[in-house]
Design a protein around this nucleic acid. Structure first.
Length: 205
DNA sequence: TGCATGATGTTCT
DNA sequence: GAACATCATGCAC
């Protein structure tokens, strides 16, 4: 796969559902002293600001969520359930909170390193299935939060990928939340085994 | 194949 | 004190 250009800040300066959908097929790269792991995204979710009851930013900025209110094109890495990290990309102009949660992807580079960070015998299509697994493959923790992802020289960056056909993008309700459960802001590539469960279905028609 | 459960820190009520 | 943008395991069917 020919590596695409690093996505510019303007890409993220839009509504989170638009960014989430267009991120499918793009490649996230995390570079550390151990090496580089690259993941082609197959599943994302959009989260908005104070209007979205499922969003961390719903009740306004806190020390944890301040990043979401900052400039777009930066990382928001949060710790959840006492043991997992998850990677988000901040969207919308500065002052408006929104982010895209990266839920699952295909390892396209650094598979061995990713497997070392997960489980020795892990199957490829399970390595980065789920937001915590994805972050683990990339070797992320809280120190990776609030970093730009728009610089080709940065340790964390996102490259343009092959745009999937519109008919291959599934839309569904978000997973693992208890508020605003009907908002269809989960996006995934159809028929990709790495999409975390429950698998979304093709829209009717 | 599918559900109940434990691990465990940060945030909010 | 409870909830939470989770995952792997174990056991029932």
């Amino acid at each position: 796969m020919r590596p695409g250009r690093v996505l510019p800040r303007s890409f993220y300066e839009r509504a989170p559902d638009v960014v989430a959908r267009e991120l499918l097929g793009c490649v996230v790269e995390a570079e550390s002293p151990e090496g580089v792991v690259a993941v082609r995204l197959v599943e994302t979710e959009a989260y908005a600001g104070p209007d979205d009851a499922a969003s961390h930013a719903w009740r306004g900025p806190t020390p944890r969520t301040a990043v979401m209110f900052g400039p777009p094109g930066r990382s928001y890495v949060y710790f959840s359930y006492g043991m997992h990290w998850a990677l988000n990309l901040v969207c919308e102009p500065q002052g408006r909170a929104a982010a895209v949660l990266l839920r699952a992807g295909q390892i396209v580079s650094g598979v061995d390193l990713a497997r070392t960070r997960r489980r020795p015998g892990a199957l490829e299509h399970r390595l980065a299935a789920g937001p915590a697994n994805l972050a683990a493959c990339l070797g992320l923790d809280g120190t990776w939060s609030d970093r730009p992802v728009t610089s080709a020289r940065g340790a964390l960056r996102v490259r343009a990928g092959e745009r999937p056909p519109t008919g291959d993008v599934l839309t569904a309700a978000r997973v693992g939340i208890s508020r605003a459960v009907d908002v269809p802001w989960r996006f995934a590539l159809a028929d990709d085994p790495r999409v975390s469960s429950p698998r979304p279905r093709r829209p009717p028609g």
